[in-house]
């Protein structure tokens, strides 16, 4: 009934827990303290008591883990389930969500320190990754056929993923572009905008040519974009925007504040003149 690993670690756990109680009593604990983990009364010498309790509970935790896996003994697992043999499970397929999740956590970490918007972006990425990862894990064992599992997963997730990914890509692109345009010089902004127009034209030509893009190139571009956005987010936040020239109305252009519709509210706060 009980596995060898469980008995080994459970025995150690019980021995250490007993030692903790005895140590508590012999170092000045009262009659209830060492038994109640100090909730009612003293436990004697704190450090040694705490150490023994921690190790004892850890050993019991390992014992419970081991018995929940039946010591990883397939014969024992089969006996426990009342079957002849344990069927092999399919290998876990590759997934890009772990690396996206890692970037998400990195984004959260940087955002936590530097910028709330970046932090929220990280949270959103992590939430999306958790959902996707969960769906992948479910789909992996939906049926015995990996291809059918993949088709099933895509049928459910694609209607959600494609609009969400498109929205995110546009939002990130716009955000990154706005940061670049605010940071570079006036001439640089013109050059960047020109390059962007050429890039959009290039993508459009590729898309209409009917050739399927190489998966590795797409992955490389996505990774580069992720690194670029994360790096640029940090850099742009630290570096800030370029200096903008302050225009003083009504001097150079000969325009008055009244002609621009600017209302002085500093006199009496009554903008309607009543």
């Amino acid at each position: 009934m009980f596995t060898t690993g469980f008995k080994f670690f459970f025995g150690i756990g019980v021995a250490l827990s007993t030692a903790a109680v005895l140590y508590g009593y012999t170092t000045g604990g009262n009659h209830v303290g060492p038994l109640s983990l100090g909730w009612k009364g003293g436990v004697g010498e704190h450090l040694g008591y705490g150490l023994l309790v921690a190790l004892g509970l850890s050993a019991i935790g390992i014992a419970l883990t081991l018995i929940s896996y039946r010591d990883a003994d397939p014969a024992d697992q089969a006996r426990f389930r009342g079957v002849d043999d344990i069927a092999p499970t399919a290998p876990v397929t590759g997934s890009h969500w772990p690396i996206v999740g890692a970037f998400g956590v990195g984004t959260m970490a940087v955002g936590l320190v530097l910028n709330t918007a970046v932090f929220i972006t990280g949270v959103v990425i992590c939430a999306a990754v958790a959902f996707e990862w969960m769906m992948d894990a479910w789909a992996d064992r939906a049926t015995g056929d990996p291809q059918a599992n993949r088709a099933l997963r895509n049928r459910i997730m694609a209607p959600l993923e494609i609009p969400a990914a498109g929205t995110a890509a546009v939002a990130l692109g716009v955000l990154a572009l706005s940061r670049i345009l605010l940071n570079v010089s006036k001439l640089g902004a013109v050059v960047v905008a020109g390059l962007l127009a050429v890039a959009i034209l290039g993508v459009a030509i590729l898309a209409t040519s009917g050739r399927r893009p190489n998966r590795n190139i797409v992955a490389g571009l996505v990774l580069s974009l992720g690194v670029g956005i994360l790096g640029f987010g940090v850099w742009a936040t630290v570096d800030g925007e370029r200096d903008f020239e302050e225009h003083e109305y009504g001097e150079d252009e000969g325009q008055s504040e009244e002609s621009l519709g600017v209302v002085d509210t500093s006199t009496d706060g009554d903008i309607y003149g009543e």
Binding site: P88, T89, A90, V92, A130, M134, A137, R141
Partner: peptide, 9 residues
């Protein structure tokens, strides 16, 4: 959030 590991068997 993860698939069960492939068993040793």
């Amino acid at each position: 959030i993860d698939s069960p590991p492939a068993t040793a068997q």
